[in-house]
């Protein structure tokens, strides 16, 4: 059960962040959520660094998908590398 519990806890944490972050908790009457009052702390005018292409995790999709294919072909592990699925044909 160890694996299931770990997975559940992590997914619940992510779900909580999404739930509270999206503000839906405030739609429930009588529910006092301390996280609901948190405002986005990086203002739009402070995002010039983040908008620079060098901060993109996928600057060149055509090269990134090829690099992923090479690693998938040479390694037993797979998944959670941020890419869409596709047929491998890795004979």
């Amino acid at each position: 059960m160890k694996m299931v519990n770990k997975t559940s806890v992590r997914l619940i944490l992510v779900a909580c962040v999404a739930l509270f972050g999206s503000g839906c908790a405030s739609t429930f009457d009588g529910f006092s959520n301390p996280l609901a009052n948190i405002e986005p702390w990086v203002k739009p005018y402070e995002r010039s660094n983040l908008a620079d292409p060098i901060m993109s995790m996928n600057r060149n999709p055509v090269a990134l998908s090829y690099a992923k294919h090479v690693f998938e072909s040479r390694e037993g592990a797979r998944g959670a590398d941020g890419g869409a699925g596709g047929g491998c044909g890795c004979n």
Partner: peptide, 19 residues
């Protein structure tokens, strides 16, 4: 797959993925 990314500061982005 499930992914979540967060702008942490004006110079830092962090992300988490499960597949």
């Amino acid at each position: 797959g499930l992914g979540f990314s967060q702008v942490a500061t004006k110079s830092l982005i962090v992300g988490f993925n499960i597949e």
